[in-house]
């Protein structure tokens, strides 16, 4: 319904073909059941069950009065399970959640799992490296890898941008705001006078 009226201004750029996918925003009515969302609903149902079952294992101190630490978990577990059942029913009937829109998201683009994968690996890697090589260096590598996964060109520029930004942020937050972030031996020596 929303994409029905074509935008006259966008259509002129369509001639080039380059912008066509972004411009023809008519949402294709999806057919069938969304397996991904069904999986999420199953996980949600599992969470509800887990809450209900594990709540029974919460120790209740003898001295506690009528309402102990189990009551609210039972309540939440019940709500979660009921929601999962109702949502599961809807999803099985073909209901689909409208994917979140964002200015930088192309709703018609196929999911780029490689980009997501690289970012996940880069982030995980930097988490493990922080205490070894310091935050600025670890985060520079992460920054460059993420930028590269998102289509930044070259090697030098992403590394340079990440390096400059991370050292600047590190100095502001560590030296001016006293946030605890390991700087790495070199940077900590170099900025010892600050």
């Amino acid at each position: 319904m929303s994409g029905a009226a074509p935008d006259p201004d966008v259509s002129t750029t369509d001639a080039t073909g380059a912008h066509a996918s972004a411009a023809s925003r008519a949402p294709a009515p999806p057919a069938g059941i969304s397996r991904g969302e069904l999986a999420m609903v199953v996980l949600l149902g599992a969470l509800g069950l887990y809450l209900l079952l594990d709540a029974a294992n919460i120790a209740v101190p003898g001295s506690s009065n009528t309402i102990g630490p189990r009551f609210f978990p039972y309540l939440v577990g019940g709500v979660v399970l009921a929601t999962a059942l109702a949502l599961g029913f809807r999803v099985l009937r073909g209901d689909r959640g409208p994917a979140d829109e964002s200015e930088d998201v192309d709703p018609d683009a196929p999911t780029s799992w490689p980009s997501v994968g690289i970012i996940v690996v880069a982030f995980l890697g930097h988490a493990l490296l922080i205490n070894v090589i310091g935050w600025p260096l670890a985060v520079t590598l992460m920054f460059a890898l993420v930028a590269w996964a998102l289509g930044a060109r070259g090697v030098v520029r992403p590394l340079l941008a990440g390096g400059v930004l991370s050292v600047f942020v590190w100095i502001v937050f560590v030296k001016a705001l006293n946030v605890a972030l390991p700087g790495g031996t070199l940077l900590e020596l170099a900025t010892g006078w600050l």
Partner: peptide, 8 residues
């Protein structure tokens, strides 16, 4: 991650 998956 979401933007990366469907970058415009």
């Amino acid at each position: 991650l979401y933007v990366a998956s469907r970058l415009r």
